[in-house]
Design a protein around this nucleic acid. Sequence first.
DNA 1: TAGATTGTTAATCGATTAACAATC
DNA 2: TAGATTGTTAATCGATTAACAATC
Lengths: 211, 211
Amino acid sequence: MTIAKAMPLSVVRRLTKYFAVLQDLKREDTEWVSSQELADTIGLTSSTVRQDLTHINFYGKSKLGYQTAGLEKALADVLGADTEWRMVVVGAGNLGRALALHEEFGRRGFKIHGIFDDDEKKIGRKVGRLTVQSMDEMPASVRKTRIDIGIIAVPPAAAQSVADMLIISGVRGLLNMALTHIVAPRRVAVIDARVIASLQELTHAIKILSE
Amino acid sequence: MTIAKAMPLSVVRRLTKYFAVLQDLKREDTEWVSSQELADTIGLTSSTVRQDLTHINFYGKSKLGYQTAGLEKALADVLGADTEWRMVVVGAGNLGRALALHEEFGRRGFKIHGIFDDDEKKIGRKVGRLTVQSMDEMPASVRKTRIDIGIIAVPPAAAQSVADMLIISGVRGLLNMALTHIVAPRRVAVIDARVIASLQELTHAIKILSE
DNA sequence: TAGATTGTTAATCGATTAACAATC
DNA sequence: TAGATTGTTAATCGATTAACAATC
């Protein structure tokens, strides 16, 4: 397991993009890719690409570029895309249920082991192969299955207390889908993935464009 | 309608966070908030907050800070959160259906006017108050209803051609949920909102933390 | 070999933070 | 008034881009 020194989040974000491109290229059996080609498909400069790749433990070849299979593997390593991650979803609303049903997660190594809600009416309902469980069962279940990641898909008002419960139960990271800021101890990673915030970025951009 | 000059995306992202905090404060009837308080709740320096707010057309008061209602309104203006946006979802898989059902969007001014898919088996199915329509109907429908935003919730391989169709049909912005890069003319805004990419950022962070 | 592309250093650009006079 | 907090300028820090020798 090769781990680089602390990397700016902006670099990590681009690495996920390179990784997606690399997976496409692999499907097409492209053996080599240059920093310029990578830059063009994503809309960057080749300089940025090469600079970003200095953060990982993989080297290209002059004149040829980067071997796609090797680079893909190196990126998978850095991003943790080569291991299986155990997750639970808290919140069995439309968003939570959709996440629990999203097959793509499983394919990419993110396995959902449970879905929880404190609404009596939702508990016991089937969501694909899972059954919505009571929040009371969450801590024991998370601890027993050694869940890595908790996905927070509850209303903003409940988000922090759900986060606290997940943290106490031993998760190492939180994916926050709720439109509220979550506070966590330094040992627990938190990433926001809020569709509404993205939509607001988008509408801002649209307003600017139509000035 | 006050529109600021081009703003770095990093600033816009923080504005969406301020906006969320402001809405919470408004609910609690807090009348004034200082840059320091805003910074503390989100985990920034007060300097960054004040600097960010120079980008919008709203001024605080010495000794008191910013009037929450006024600041909220100014942010809503910049982010376009004070207007209604018409959207369609393309892709009626789990993710697409969940987005179409997500009530929060409507509450926040994002109205979903249609959901489309090219899978025969999905066409005609009910998704809440909507019915899945054929992709063939999409362009006319989007044009007629003057849809602003297209949400792309299809597999990566189909994403670009769906984007092209949406653009030809006249949308002004795209929210890309697919794990692939989308190319669009400059007049069309594109924002990526890919849960898998966020999960990969998260697993990277977890790996770093457990070094 | 000649030419293309890397890895890396240095230069530029932009964003964040610090500092402080102005102000309520 | 004295004190707190703004808006803004200047200093710092970091990230992106340019440039180029090394190399295959």
